[in-house]
Simulated assay, not measured.
Amino acid sequence: MSKSKNSGRRAARAQAFQVLYSLSFADISGEEDVRRAFRLFPAPPGPDGDADDAPQTEEGFAWELVHGVWLRNADLDELIGRFSRNWRVDRLGRVERTLLRLALYEMLYRQDVPAKVAINEALELTRQFGEDNAVSFVNGVLDAAARALEDGSLEARDQPPA
């Protein structure tokens, strides 16, 4: 993967996190609300670092993440509960819950993203947006999920058509 693709994906992940985090405060009644929220966020900077002033559209990596995570929130929360010891999902902070959903989605549904990359990117976002002590918690949950993927007790899933 090229460096510009990596930096573009990193910016798209940060954007997806911010959109998904904002949705945790909103009363979302359907997919059109998710699309509207996505369009309101500024596009991530391009490979040259310049922001794109064009209106946001529902295409590209950031949208795929937002849409995929939103569609699978309940399944992702079930997995978070499975891999977080002694923590109920509804007791997690919104930042950590959103970051865990995002990383687990990538690990399970994005065959082009290795689990190690999804974990590293989630940890970077946790350092940027989360509490100081959240990094070890997020790492523990995602590492447990990665081990389950490796030993076959959790299977990656095909991406259904949008």
Rank of each mutant, 00 (worst) to 15 (best):
S24H: 07
A26Q: 13
D27Y: 15
I28P: 02
S29A: 09
G30L: 14
E31Q: 13
E32C: 11
E32Q: 12
R35L: 12
A37W: 04
A37Y: 03
A37C: 15
F38Y: 15
R39C: 12
L40Y: 08
L40D: 08
F41K: 07
A43M: 15
P44C: 06
P45Q: 02
P45W: 02
G46R: 15
D48E: 12
G49R: 04
G49W: 02
D50C: 12
A51M: 08
A51Q: 05
D53V: 10
A54W: 14
P55L: 12
P55K: 03
Q56P: 14
T57M: 09
E58P: 03
E59S: 13
E59T: 11
E59G: 13
F61R: 11
W63A: 01
V66T: 09
V69E: 01
W70N: 05
W70G: 01
L71S: 06
N73G: 06
N73W: 15
N73C: 12
A74M: 13
A74K: 10
D75K: 07
D75E: 11
L76H: 05
E78K: 14
L79Q: 06
L79M: 09
I80M: 01
R82C: 05
R85G: 07
N86M: 08
N86P: 09
W87M: 06
R88Q: 14
R88D: 07
V89W: 00
R91F: 10
G93H: 05
R94P: 05
R94N: 07
V95Q: 02
E96N: 08
R97M: 00
T98A: 00
L99E: 00
R101N: 03
A103Y: 01
Y105N: 04
E106P: 02
E106W: 01
M107T: 02
M107A: 09
M107I: 12
L108F: 02
L108V: 06
Q111E: 10
V113S: 09
V113N: 05
P114V: 11
P114K: 11
A115P: 05
A118D: 04
N120M: 14
E121A: 11
L123G: 07
R127A: 10
Q128G: 14
F129D: 03
N133F: 13
N133M: 05
N133C: 05
A134Y: 03
V135E: 10
V138A: 12
V138E: 01
G140V: 04
L142V: 09
A146H: 08
R147H: 15
A148S: 11
